[in-house]
Simulated assay, not measured.
Amino acid sequence: MRASWAVIAVMLMAAPARAEENSAAREVMSHMARGARSARVGDWVTYRFDGGAGGMRIYYWRMAVVGEEKDKEGRDAVWVEMEAGMHPSMKSPLMQMRMLVAREGEQIRYDAISRLFVGGPTDRPQEYSQEALDHVLKTMDQEEKDNKVPDPEDAKVVLPAGVKPVLRTGKETRVMTLAGTVTVVPVELVMKKTVVKRMWISREIPLMQLAKMEIPGIAHSMEVAEYGIDAKPRMVLPPPSAPKVRLEYADRIFPDLPGMDAPKEPADSENAP
């Protein structure tokens, strides 16, 4: 999936018709065409997640583009850092990731990660071996397929009688966020008259172009807290000679965001740098 249009891609996959034939998709694309730009080095955005439970499961997630170089296949690529923590400024982050991701033109390709570093609150960052990285990417790809909203136009998809995902939008408007007031297009994904997800798409927000998102059924929400264009690298990388994460450890130490059920287990001491 192409990164800076990630939210748009998700919506188009959920749409019951091709983009050019769907009024909801046209509204969003028209909004984005009025000034949205692709990701650049320095772009960053921080989101506030509320996992329900009366505000007891609130955490923050930050994404930033912090550098660029050629990857091992000679493709143009950028370094993307991600952090998760309990404070918007990522004091004592619970997770850090840094990945080298290929790009086509101005679009970042998250299906083309060639290097990956992962660090935890008590673990020094480690680079994944190629074997472990391939395993992680395969797992992520399968999870994305499993979580994809069924497309009723797909003859292979059998939906229950009367169930048809519907994507609908409102007109372009202004909405208040934790990061200030931005121009958005509101989008709703509806199934059997029930709103499954609400999103507010904004061309003003870098990287994800997402201002807000709500999942009413489980009381989860996501809202932009801060963003800017001055990101610098924050992860301290291990020396080239440091041991890499091997395949047998990939599942165990690949980080889960706060609020996930599966706990993170520490890496084996034999594999620690």
Rank of each mutant, 00 (worst) to 15 (best):
S4F: 09
S241L: 10
G35M: 08
D141Q: 13
D134T: 12
A53P: 06
K244E: 09
K192T: 13
A33S: 15
A24N: 01
S241I: 11
P93F: 03
V101F: 00
D134E: 11
I8N: 07
L116R: 01
K264W: 09
E68M: 07
M176C: 00
K212S: 07
L210Y: 13
S114L: 07
M86L: 15
A14L: 09
P125R: 13
T183Y: 01
G51I: 04
I205Y: 02
L178A: 09
P165F: 07
V187R: 00
A14T: 11
P121C: 04
W61H: 12
K164N: 14
V236K: 15
G259D: 04
I8E: 11
A161K: 11
M29E: 05
V184H: 02
A36E: 12
E83R: 08
S241R: 10
D154L: 13
L100P: 03
D141N: 14
S23P: 10
A262Y: 04
V7H: 02
K156R: 15
V136E: 04
D151L: 08
S114D: 09
E188L: 12
V7L: 09
P150N: 06
R174A: 12
F49A: 12
R252T: 11
D146S: 13
H31T: 10
P121Q: 12
A132G: 03
K264Q: 09
Y227N: 04
V175N: 02
V166C: 02
H220Q: 12
Y60C: 06
Q107F: 12
V185F: 02
R252A: 15
K264R: 11
L167A: 12
S30W: 02
E131W: 02
A39S: 11
T46I: 05
E214D: 14
M82T: 13
V149M: 09
H135Q: 11
A102D: 08
L189V: 14
M11V: 04
P152S: 15
E248A: 07
G228M: 12
V195C: 05
V41T: 12
S202Y: 01
E68Y: 01
A84L: 06
Y249E: 10
Y59G: 05
M213G: 07
A155F: 14
G42K: 14
A64N: 03
A6F: 14
E106L: 10
I108P: 02
H135W: 15
L12Y: 00
G162W: 07
G54W: 04
P150K: 08
V157Q: 15
V149H: 09
K212W: 01
A39Q: 01
M32E: 13
V245H: 03
G162S: 09
V190K: 06
Y249G: 04
K145P: 02
D71T: 06
V136Y: 05
L207C: 03
R57T: 02
R234P: 09
P273T: 00
M176E: 14
E143I: 15
D146E: 15
G55K: 04
A250Y: 07
L116D: 00
S241P: 04
R75S: 13
V78I: 02
M13F: 07
F117Q: 09
V163I: 10
I201S: 02
M235R: 14
V224I: 00
A84W: 05
E73C: 08
R98P: 07
A33P: 13
A132D: 03
T173E: 05
I229H: 15
M95E: 01
W79A: 05
M97L: 15
A3K: 00
R234G: 06
T46A: 08
L178I: 00
D146A: 14
E214R: 06
I58Y: 02
P88T: 03
